[in-house]
Write a protein that binds this DNA or RNA. Structure first.
Lengths: 229, 229
DNA sequence: CAAAATTGTCACGAAATTGTCATCTTCCCG
DNA sequence: CGGGAAGATGACAATTTCGTGACAATTTTG
């Protein structure tokens, strides 16, 4: 279970330490020193979750969390608060603000890993290993198989990732750029129109089970997996 | 994120300084020395937000904020209060009055920028991704769907943006120029009459669910989305 | 290593969208 | 009532956007 994690922590020592732990656990880590930087980064890199230090210079962690939560685009990004030992008020306040979990410093790498795993399981549908069913379509992340009305579908690797992404994010329009970021990866340099071609290939494959209209194109905006007929 | 900001500050030195900062950050700045001037300017120029000094000659900032809030036309314009250092009472009072945020002088350009960005993100209604419902009409920015009485409406990209804007700014008249700025974009050079045509197309589409009279024409002034029948 | 599969890019055509204009309608005011 | 101003409407051409098939490059597989 590899995830992209945004770490917001002003003390560079602790930041490095946590970053090391997370990296070794197989996660991609993006670091921010301040609330402002965090705001920038979370928008452009769409992390799978945020590790947020309670105490920050300027804007406090809790304020930052509140901002995250008030913006619909970031509403679904899970947040874990890092707090100093035993400050119960902070804990309550943090959870009220919408943090998904909190962890008190100092903590062991194992504990951190466990919390991350738990939160991701709860909040990031893509990362789970559960089967996803939708309109007679069943996608199994484990066996890497897809069936439509019990008919096995032949999908290439990219088509599979694309469908996987759409099925974990239904009823939501994604631009070509967003799809490239989410399905191909941030760093990749690929033409936007390439998305069209893969959408087409995916549609063709889905057609084998009568699901050709599952993915709708939204002119001028992007594509969307529609749950309704 | 470029915005039009109304700055209300009586000390010309500070005013110049802030104006410089904001301009460099890519915002358009309109300055007012007094509450009276501010009232004039906010009506005619429709800023995206207001930076309001707490201490003003004559009418105080907080009174001004109260007036802003009580006027339907300005109700949706976010306000950031500028207060002197550490006056907590002001802070509380300010937030109660309806200020969206406060910032204590002196402050760094970075902090100001961050607060502005945050407030705009929170308050600029078009930016949120919450579903908007109005007279049986439901617009979902996320899925890019519009339904009127559960009937799906077919909208082109521009019609969608136009309706989105109106639904986030109901009961308020917008001139063609303002609509071009808000829906098309500042830089675009398009005939004003083009707005008429798109209004028409939007009305036609809305007619499919019996909402043809949703957008009213205000002769000599512009158009308005009416909430009431 | 050869065959097969996958992938990114391109060019072309179809279709949708858009801006503009000319022409009616409607409304306002003397 | 008439004249004009402002808005509505329909048509149209230009542009944009998307779908589609082909193809070469690359990777995977046998």
């Amino acid at each position: 279970m590899a995830a992209t994690i945004l770490l917001v922590e002003d003390e560079s020592g602790i930041q490095e330490l946590i970053k090391l732990n997370l990296t070794q656990a197989g996660h991609a880590v993006i670091c921010a020193d301040s609330a402002e930087q965090a705001l920038m980064l979370i928008r452009q890199s769409l992390p799978d979750m945020v590790l947020l230090d309670w105490m920050l210079p300027g804007m406090s962690g809790i304020e930052l969390a509140r901002i995250f939560r008030s913006d619909a685009r970031m509403k679904n990004v899970p947040i874990i608060m890092l707090t100093a030992r035993g400050d119960e008020r902070d804990k309550v306040l943090g959870l009220e603000t919408g943090a998904d979990d909190y962890i008190t410093k100092p903590f062991s790498p194992r504990e951190l890993s466990a919390r991350i795993k738990a939160v991701l399981r709860r909040r990031a549908p893509q990362m789970t290993e559960d089967r996803i069913a939708l309109r007679g379509l069943v996608l199994d992340p484990v066996s890497h198989r897809v069936t439509g009305h019990d008919i096995a579908l032949e999908l290439g690797p990219t088509e599979f990732r694309l469908l996987h992404f759409f099925m974990t994010h239904p009823e939501r329009v994604y631009s070509r750029t967003q799809l490239l970021d989410q399905v191909w990866g941030d760093h990749v340099f690929v033409e936007e129109r390439t998305v069209d071609v893969h959408i087409r290939r995916l549609r063709l494959a889905l057609g084998a089970s009568g699901h050709e209209d599952l993915i709708a194109t939204v002119r001028g905006a992007g594509y969307r997996l529609s749950v309704h007929d």
